[in-house]
């Protein structure tokens, strides 16, 4: 079982302004603003990292225990996936053919 990688919904437009990400979702005309740590998580979601890997990076960058970083990352990812801002993609190795 391969872990899903997190990737931004390609239909969105987003920009980091002074370290905080603003996401525009044209489909439902909503602008989402993320705080600094959520922005960090968002910017690590490049299609190559799992929530667990992102939580490790979060704990390395911020004053937080790895367990708390993992729980908070999972909670945020669930929220962003529910809003269709983040998508889970299969691991790159698992999706290759040929």
């Amino acid at each position: 079982m391969t872990e899903p990688r997190l990737v931004h919904n390609p239909l969105l437009a987003w920009r980091a302004i002074e370290g905080e990400v603003v996401i525009i979702s044209p489909e439902d005309s909503v602008v989402h603003e993320l705080n600094a740590t959520a922005s960090f998580v968002w910017m690590q979601a490049n299609g190559e990292r799992t929530p667990e890997e992102i939580a490790v990076l979060l704990a390395a960058e911020y004053e937080v225990a790895p367990e708390e970083a993992l729980a908070d990352t999972r909670e945020l990812v669930a929220h962003l996936e529910a809003k269709r801002l983040l998508l889970s993609s299969p691991a790159a190795e698992g999706s290759r053919h040929g």
Binding site: L34, N35, A36, T37, V41, E63, D72, T73
Partner: peptide, 10 residues
Amino acid sequence: GKRKYIKPAC
């Protein structure tokens, strides 16, 4: 070298 942590949120 570590930044102050706040819970990630929208």
